[in-house]
Simulated assay, not measured.
Amino acid sequence: MHHRTSLTEKDLADCINPIVRGWMNHYGAFYRSALYPLLERINAYLLRWVRRKYKRLRGSRKARTSWNNAVRKRPRAFAHWAWVTHAPTVW
């Protein structure tokens, strides 16, 4: 996912939202806490995508600031942001 830098944020969301929404509906009904690490991993890949697409955000601090602004401005852009909005710090 993080290698698709030619896609816009909306295109990327259109690709992954139906899949992630299906996981959340199916597995979230039975074992919701098991999904949190997976959703954080998706956020980590999204953060990598941001850092690769926008060269000015290569630094981790700038990327985090941009990430927080994106989540605050567009909280429904990605389906899994309803449950998990932060990206792991180790990625």
Rank of each mutant, 00 (worst) to 15 (best):
H2G: 00
H2F: 11
H2Q: 09
H3L: 07
S6A: 09
L7T: 00
T8K: 05
T8C: 02
D11A: 13
L12D: 03
A13E: 05
A13H: 04
C15F: 08
C15V: 11
N17H: 04
I19W: 10
I19M: 13
I19F: 10
V20D: 04
W23H: 13
M24T: 04
M24P: 02
N25V: 01
Y27G: 01
G28M: 10
F30P: 00
Y31S: 05
R32W: 07
R32V: 09
R32Y: 05
L35R: 09
Y36V: 14
P37L: 07
L39F: 14
I42F: 13
I42R: 03
N43C: 09
A44P: 09
A44G: 15
L46T: 07
L46R: 15
R48I: 06
R48M: 14
V50T: 13
V50G: 11
K55Y: 08
L57P: 01
L57I: 02
S60K: 10
S60T: 09
K62Y: 09
K62R: 13
R64P: 00
T65S: 15
S66L: 00
S66W: 15
W67D: 07
A70D: 08
V71W: 06
R72G: 00
R72A: 14
K73D: 15
K73W: 12
A79R: 08
H80G: 02
H80P: 01
A82L: 06
V84G: 12
V84H: 08
A87E: 11
V90F: 09
